[in-house]
Design a binder for these strands. Structure first.
Lengths: 206, 206
DNA sequence: TTCCATGCTGTTAATTTAATCAGCGTCCGG
DNA sequence: CCGGACGCTGATTAAATTAACAGCATGGAA
């Protein structure tokens, strides 16, 4: 897809937004109104340019005959799916843009209440819970965890995935692998629960 | 959503199909042509009925102003996603309608070349491969398997999931759990490879 | 400078489309 | 037999929409 001018990008964004909000493409007049043109022809010209550059397809003699090209559709998908977090840059919030490797559309109904992001698991410390190195953990952002849940925790700026266990005031982060020792943060240490796991996805390397 | 008459269902199906094929809703005239009406009014009346029953919403004074209601959209998703296979009725092909518990939309890009269905894993025989009881195996339909791949195999009408291993002419289906013995089908036994695993999904029960 | 792409205004004709009115036939339950 | 829901034809009208033409202005490349 050829590079778009600023104005063309705005038109394309509006088409996407309209499609999303109303379930059908806009008319020339609606585009003109949204972008502040006083002439519908301005929209027409932009649409021709977008078609020429391969961003959209125009259906002749059909009202609202605008469709996103395969490439433009792909882009919409990558803008709306669950973000995949690979490495977490030190000190950055998990969902910072720099940590997002890709976005994937996943059916919400599979993962209970709600899912917020995917986190690539590093290491074998949860091996015996069936969570292997490279698996994608489906995570819901919440500071509340129940005993036995797999949680994403941040201790002194280090993010880890462990099984949560609380006895009274004492919190422990357990591994599921005899080679790894449990973590017992010193009282007063900066332990933050960033989220709880609601699913696991493994692809390839079976 | 109230129950639809046959004809109303056909109209709704056509709207879905048109949306899918062209990316925009149909006009009254297009509906009439597709269903064989000679009057566009027949479509109009059907649309009113569909709106009254909550299947669609009509946007007044807008060409192609038809949108699927939340419920109807949900149904589209369940009609197009990957089928989840729970139990396989004896003797039936895996993808038989009776075996489908639900359908889920999953991002194709996650699971390599192509995925065909989800199969709920029963038992712990692949525990040490990180595949637990109740996990959903993402399966691609193919009769070809490579050494070490997790395969869906049918032996004498029984469907199992195992690790595939071939040495010359000898084929063995291995477990990943010392409590289970490998399966060595007698030469000439009806062993059919139904597909290979391309992913695993676990939701809940972490 | 000239040419061309971009980005717009303003207008108009032709066509598409929604929306409505008047009818006709069938089937079903009261 | 009546009333009502369903399913359709056919025609008409008003409004929405596309698509085209004539211009004007700007800025960059030849």
């Amino acid at each position: 897809m050829e590079i778009l001018t600023d104005r063309q990008q705005q038109v394309l964004d509006f088409i996407r937004h309209h499609l999303d909000a109303h379930g059908l493409p806009p008319t020339r007049a609606e585009i003109a109104r949204a972008l502040g043109f006083s002439s519908g022809n301005a929209a027409e010209v932009h649409l021709r340019a977008l078609e020429r550059k391969g961003a959209i397809e125009l259906i002749a003699h059909a009202s609202r005959g605008i469709r996103l090209s395969a490439m433009a559709q792909e882009f919409t998908a990558t803008a709306t799916g669950l973000p995949l977090i690979g490495r977490i840059a030190a000190g950055s919030p998990i969902l910072a843009e720099q940590n997002i490797e890709a976005r994937y559309q996943l059916d919400e109904r599979l993962f209970g209440p709600h899912a917020d992001y995917l986190l690539r698991v590093q290491g074998q410390s949860l091996r015996d819970a069936g969570i292997l190195d490279g698996d994608l953990l489906v995570v819901r952002c919440t500071p509340e965890a129940c005993n036995g849940q797999i949680v994403v925790a941040r201790i002194d700026d280090e993010v880890t995935v462990k099984r949560f266990e609380r006895t009274g005031e004492r919190v422990r982060l357990l591994s599921a692998n005899p080679d790894f020792a449990p973590i017992e943060p010193a009282t007063g240490a900066a332990l933050v629960i960033e989220g709880v796991a609601v699913g696991v996805i493994r692809c390839g390397r079976l």
